[in-house]
């Protein structure tokens, strides 16, 4: 299973939830599959999806789902320590770990080799860490929402990208409609 298939599978669970989505093809895929004001698309700044999501989770009470990638988490590995040490029961980090830098041409990452992001997340202090296959990602996400506990989900899957259009929406529009969704009752 590749990332776009997992996103399609999880779309009903993501619906109307606050979602912060990783730069590049992940955001393009989510945008094409299910565009909503409650999606925050990163257009730049590789690695910071989890940090933006954590700040958002700390600042308000609604659940926050971050869709991140293995390559991006590796560029900001300190984020797992900050997550592990910060009280944020409404925070879910879902790492689509396809063992490759998808947006740049599927070059291999260390997460696809000897490095286990799930073990790093655990060692950094997060108690609820779930590793699953692509087929089970939707269910793992649903369970994390029901648990109401800070969770890191590592979804092990195949590398590969769907052909989707670039997001041309203005960043201020993305941010403004997202903040509207955050404030909505």
């Amino acid at each position: 299973m590749i990332r776009s298939e997992i996103l399609r599978d999880m779309a009903p669970v993501l619906k109307d939830r606050l979602v912060v989505c990783n730069i590049g093809i992940p955001s393009q895929e989510l945008h094409a599959i299910q565009d909503e004001p409650s999606n925050f698309y990163m257009l730049g700044t590789m690695g910071l999806a989890s940090s933006i999501g954590l700040g958002l989770a700390v600042a308000q009470k609604k659940p926050v789902i971050v869709i991140d990638g293995d390559g991006s988490v590796l560029t900001n590995l300190g984020t797992l320590a900050t997550i592990g040490n910060t009280h944020a029961p409404n925070f879910i980090l879902l790492i689509i770990d396809n063992g490759s830098y998808g947006s740049t041409g599927d070059q291999p990452t260390y997460a696809g080799q000897r490095t286990s992001l799930a073990e790093v997340a655990r060692a950094c202090g997060t108690e609820r860490v779930v590793e699953c296959r692509g087929e089970d990602a939707g269910q793992a996400l649903q369970r994390a929402l029901e648990a109401g506990e800070k969770t890191v989900i590592v979804v092990k899957c195949d590398s590969g990208n769907a052909k989707m259009p670039v997001i041309t929406m203005d960043p201020v529009t993305i941010r403004d409609r997202f903040m509207g969704a955050v404030q909505a009752e």
Binding site: L48, I52, G55, L56, V58
Partner: peptide
């Protein structure tokens, strides 16, 4: 990383 946290906190 800190600036990412600040961006999220502001939107929250």
């Amino acid at each position: 990383e800190g600036m990412g946290l600040c961006a999220g906190a502001f939107m929250g």
